[in-house]
Amino acid sequence: MATDAALRRLLRLHRTEIAVAVDSAFPLLHALADHDVVPEDKFQETLHLKEKEGCPQAFHALLSWLLTQDSTAILDFWRVLFKDYNLERYGRLQPILDSFPKDVDLSQPRKGRKPPAVPKALVPPPRLPTKRKASEEARAAAPAALTPRGTASPGSQLKAKPPKKPESSAEQQRLPLGNGIQTMSASVQRAVAMSSGDVPGARGAVEGILIQQVFESGGSKKCIQVGGEFYTPSKFEDSGSGKNKARSSSGPKPLVRAKGAQGAAPGGGEARLGQQGSVPAPLALPSDPQLHQKNEDECAVCRDGGELICCDGCPRAFHLACLSPPLREIPSGTWRCSSCLQATVQEVQPRAEEPRPQEPPVETPLPPGLRSAGEEVRGPPGEPLAGMDTTLVYKHLPAPPSAAPLPGLDSSALHPLLCVGPEGQQNLAPGARCGVCGDGTDVLRCTHCAAAFHWRCHFPAGTSRPGTGLRCRSCSGDVTPAPVEGVLAPSPARLAPGPAKDDTASHEPALH
């Protein structure tokens, strides 16, 4: 009773807030009518008042009428009001819900409408889902798969039609296919003929059939049928067999079959498995989609049935006599038709004709302190090069084509190399640097090759510096006499390219 009084008091307290929050009759008014909170006449009256005075006034009048009803109607109103779709449509209802007392429970059932309790003993237990329907569909599909699609060729003596089998029958139906081979029951999904010589313990000319048996419980189990008994694959494991010639990621696949039913060829011909030897223990289905393919039931050349050999690369099948050149017997292992072999060759040939990528240039590290003349020119003028003790990398590039010797140069053309002071002394051009340390401070000019250098860098042994005729380390061993002091540049003949010694390969005349 306390809860009923509290709900009535809360409705009177929030009546105006609810009326202002509800700006549309749908969905709240319609939901109240659906849950029998508002009768039909009051529903029509509220809609009429909404058209006349507006939605807030109409709902305020409806809530005032609701306060005169019993506690069950008020409880049902609060339940409908706080439904998710009403809270989404009328956003101003959320503060009312947040301020609702926590001790007021809106989930209690309506009085007088409590459903009768059902004894637990009368409640049926839930049924577990079964796979009976899938099993029945598999039974119905198996006879259809064994139905012949056409008439065999005159040369083929193997013609068999499976008798119709009602689904209610649980007995196995067997077809006489000759040579002791028996087909599987209607619940078998796949059958492959297997030679009895590969099964340990088999006697006589009995041949087993590799099947997948579907049981009534819905589970499946792969086994071997020899005669009327089934054997699990673990009985046929043979770890010492060295003649297993397995197909790549293979499961067994029928390579020879008669049109209309699988079996042995007439005249004692023995149908073979995809792999010879003992049956392997793992009978998992292969991951290669080509091995799941269903080959055609007629020859791809003459479009006739009979004894066919199936290609492992495509769905086509052929007569042995229709092949070019014809085959006398079934080859062992994987067999592919000429079209598949030709496609494989065409895929391999473009790969062989692809040009080989060019090898990157060989990189040879230079000892610290040495650099090529090109690196000396590329440096920024007026700045010493940083990191001189790091190992430089010199790339061996292809030799350029031989060019004509340089033409003779006048001494005026070499004027930018040297600057003559007032006393006739050779001065260095701006930006000249030593080729060893890279520093341009207090550098000297070689009178023979006009290269800038430090005496301490080229002659670290402490050799005394002569007063005139300074030469760098590369030119100090040259027998050519030094030019007379005061000459602007060496003779043009000295600039012609010539053979250089091994220790002077990195010091070429550089223009500054």
Rank of each mutant, 00 (worst) to 15 (best):
T183V: 06
P162I: 15
A141K: 13
D23R: 01
R174W: 15
K131H: 02
N179C: 13
Q213C: 03
L273A: 09
S241K: 03
K133G: 02
K111G: 08
A58R: 03
Q94P: 02
T46D: 00
R190Y: 07
E167H: 01
R8W: 01
P254K: 06
P163D: 01
A134Q: 11
H14T: 03
A142L: 12
R8L: 01
W78C: 02
Q108A: 02
A6V: 07
A186N: 04
L93C: 01
L67I: 04
A246G: 06
L128P: 12
E136M: 04
Q172W: 15
K164L: 12
G178R: 15
M194F: 04
L175Y: 15
A271I: 11
K165H: 12
K243I: 10
S168D: 03
N86C: 03
E167K: 06
P176H: 11
F82N: 00
G260L: 14
A170V: 07
F43D: 00
G180I: 03
A193M: 05
K253A: 13
F100H: 06
P166T: 14
D84F: 01
K50P: 00
D23W: 00
W65Y: 00
Y85Q: 00
A144P: 15
A145R: 07
P95D: 04
A140W: 15
A121L: 11
R272P: 08
S217A: 04
D198M: 10
K52Q: 00
P126T: 02
G242I: 00
G54I: 04
K83C: 02
Y231D: 06
S156R: 09
F236P: 03
H30Q: 00
S217Q: 04
R79H: 13
S234T: 05
P125F: 09
Y90D: 02
K221C: 09
D36Q: 01
L158G: 14
E136R: 01
L87P: 02
F43A: 00
S107W: 15
D36P: 02
P126Y: 01
L10G: 01
P115W: 03
E17Y: 00
K222W: 01
K42V: 07
V214Y: 13
I224K: 07
A141T: 09
L63Y: 00
K131T: 00
K222T: 02
D76E: 02
A73E: 07
S185F: 04
V123M: 15
T183K: 09
R247G: 05
P109I: 06
K161I: 13
L273I: 11
V188W: 05
L28T: 05
G155C: 05
G263T: 11
K133H: 03
A25Q: 02
A264E: 08
A5L: 10
A142E: 12
P126F: 03
A141Y: 15
A61I: 00
G54F: 01
G112T: 14
T16N: 05
P163K: 14
F43P: 05
K111M: 00
A142N: 04
N86W: 00
A205M: 01
S135D: 15
Q108R: 09
T16L: 01
Q173L: 15
L255I: 09
R190V: 02
A117E: 10
T68L: 06
S107E: 07
R149T: 05
E207M: 00
S239F: 11
A271L: 13
S71M: 04
K253T: 04
V206C: 05
K159V: 11
L62F: 00
L158Q: 08
A121P: 09
G150R: 02
E207S: 04
S239V: 12
M194W: 03
K235R: 13
P125H: 13
G263S: 13
A202N: 15
I211C: 04
G228R: 13
G54S: 00
G219V: 12
V123P: 06
K111S: 12
F26W: 13
Q182I: 00
L146F: 08
K83L: 07
I96H: 11
A258V: 14
K131A: 03
R127T: 03
L11D: 05
E207N: 04
H60D: 01
Y85C: 03
A202G: 07
K243Q: 07
Q262H: 07
A138S: 08
A58V: 03
D103Q: 04
